[in-house]
């Protein structure tokens, strides 16, 4: 839909080699990722950027849904804090989700994600807020005492300093003990992105 504008847009894909060098993507993967970016960015507001509405539509296939986590992910991706993602921001953020990204980067990103108030630690109240939001978003209903007992157990396990909060070091130890907590930080799709968006070869700037 917005192919022509983006091709001539100064925000378009320039120097995929540099981005490939600074991320976990190959040059071909960057070019294929750009095809995905173009598709998502022109969904709602066709300005060559991914706005929150574009992002939610791509994630949920509807823009009528509100999600605490979709907002949180978007805000973390939005490094320039201008409410819209350029391709570079998009590629750099998704790079953390690459199967070959260092696990330390995944730990860091997931900590930031759950540190809702960006205080450098995760409070019990924040964990409760996220559990309640997850249950509401998935249409599940759990009694408050069950939610409290899940959180109690989590803090028993994670809060080894017993100060009622989970700091970065405790988070790191927790996920190293329970690697499944990082499962959503790896997108296998990023391995196959060149297959998913083969049209990148028509716009490729590099010889293979």
């Amino acid at each position: 839909c917005c192919e022509i504008e983006l091709q001539n847009n100064p925000r378009g894909l320039r120097e995929p080699q540099i981005l490939a060098r600074e991320t976990n993507f190959s040059v071909s993967e960057i070019e294929a990722l750009y095809e995905l970016f173009k598709k998502i960015s022109c969904a709602v507001i066709d300005d060559g950027l991914i706005n929150k509405e574009d992002f939610q539509l791509a994630l949920f296939k509807t823009n009528k849904r509100k999600s605490l986590f979709a907002d949180r992910v978007f805000d973390l991706f939005d490094i320039n804090h201008n409410g819209a993602l350029g391709f570079e921001e998009f590629a750099r953020a998704l790079s953390v989700f690459h199967p070959s990204a260092p696990v330390e980067d995944k730990i860091e990103f997931s900590f930031k994600l759950y540190d809702l108030k960006q205080q450098g630690y995760i409070e019990r109240q924040e964990v409760k807020q996220m559990v309640v939001a997850t249950l509401a978003e998935s249409g599940m209903d759990l009694a408050d005492e069950i939610v409290e007992s899940i959180i109690d157990k989590t803090f028993e396990d994670a809060d080894t300093k017993h100060d009622g909060r989970i700091d970065k070091e405790e988070w790191r130890n927790l996920v190293l003990r329970h690697p499944s907590l990082l499962k959503n930080m790896t997108l296998q799709y990023l391995m196959d992105i060149t297959t998913a968006f083969p049209s990148f070869v028509f716009h490729s700037q590099v010889d293979d």
Binding site: L36, I40, A58, L59, F60, K61, S67, L68, F69, A70, D71, R72, V73, L94, F97, L113, Y114, V127, M130, V131, A133, T134, L135, E137, S138, L142, I146, S149, I150, I151, K153, T154, D157, L174, H178, S180, L181, K183, N184, L187, Q188, Y189, I193, A196
Partner: peptide, 25 residues
Amino acid sequence: RPSLMNAFELISTSQGLNLSTLFEK
């Protein structure tokens, strides 16, 4: 048994954190 589940395990199942849907056509 949800009472034995880690809160973050539950949170990580949230659809808003499942970015793989970005790649669905």
